[in-house]
Computed example of a mutant assay.
Amino acid sequence: MNPELDLTIERIIRAPRKVVWDAWTDPGSLAQWWVPAPTLCRVDRLEVRPGGAFVTRISDDGDTFDPHLDACFLQVDEFERIVFTNAVDSAWRPADPAPVAMTAEITLGDHADGTDYRIVVRHGDPAARERHAELGFADGWGTVAGQLARFVERVP
């Protein structure tokens, strides 16, 4: 973690790692929590493997879904880690994504109360990190982490 280039979110989720993993890797589950409510998410492609596509769209009205994320997975360690980037799109082409290019690493660890959930979002330079922070990284990614927690904590 480089504080000049990276932003982080950490929380304890009161659910087993497998349940959190399944929420990340099942398209129907991911659509339930991946974007801050009340915005809706549609998962077009979720190929959770190195080189696999990660493509979502969002809607504020439930009718029109606009592009949200076109990314690819870089590393996948079952039940432990997911790494994806939007700097390379789902067709493996270099991308110039708005608002910033990033690589996100999600790690899941055992915790006495469930899952130690950590996100590190890496940026190419301090300006990109600052822009992402100013655009509401903490609120956006924090809200989504909270939605994930609520989603998995109610799973039997």
Rank of each mutant, 00 (worst) to 15 (best):
N2H: 02
P67H: 09
C72R: 15
M1V: 12
L74K: 05
D44I: 04
V20A: 10
T143V: 02
L69W: 03
V48F: 06
T143D: 05
H68M: 05
T115Y: 09
G109C: 08
T107K: 06
D110S: 02
V20L: 05
V48E: 10
A15N: 01
A31Q: 02
H132T: 12
L74W: 03
V55Y: 04
E47L: 02
T25H: 08
C41N: 12
A149H: 09
V144E: 11
A149I: 09
P99F: 08
T107W: 05
E4Q: 12
D61Y: 00
A53W: 05
R150P: 00
T85F: 12
I13F: 08
V155D: 04
P38R: 01
N2E: 07
L46P: 01
L69E: 07
E134I: 08
I119T: 05
T85H: 13
D60G: 11
R14W: 03
W24Y: 09
V152R: 03
L46I: 03
P36Y: 12
A71P: 01
A71K: 02
D60M: 10
L30A: 13
A138Q: 13
A138V: 12
A95W: 05
S59F: 08
Q147D: 01
D6E: 02
D61V: 05
P94M: 01
A87F: 01
E105Y: 02
L148I: 11
V19Y: 02
D63F: 00
V48N: 00
A128L: 11
W141H: 06
R14S: 07
R122K: 13
V20M: 04
C72T: 15
G136V: 10
M102I: 09
L7V: 07
H68W: 11
T103A: 09
G136N: 06
C72I: 01
R45T: 05
T85R: 11
E78F: 07
G62N: 02
W24H: 10
A145G: 11
I58V: 14
D26S: 14
I9V: 14
D116S: 15
L69A: 01
R81V: 13
D70N: 15
G146V: 01
G140R: 04
W141M: 10
T107G: 05
W33E: 11
A104H: 02
T103H: 09
H111R: 03
L148A: 04
R131Y: 03
V121W: 06
S29Q: 14
A127H: 10
E130Q: 15
A128R: 07
S59T: 13
G28N: 15
P3C: 08
I9E: 03
K18Q: 15
R93E: 15
T64K: 11
N2W: 07
V121R: 08
A145R: 06
P16M: 00
D22Y: 09
V55P: 05
A128H: 04
Y117C: 01
E130L: 14
L108N: 04
E80T: 14
R42C: 08
V20Q: 05
V144G: 09
W24E: 00
V120L: 12
T85G: 14
F73I: 06
M102E: 15
P126F: 07
F151C: 01
G124T: 14
V155T: 11
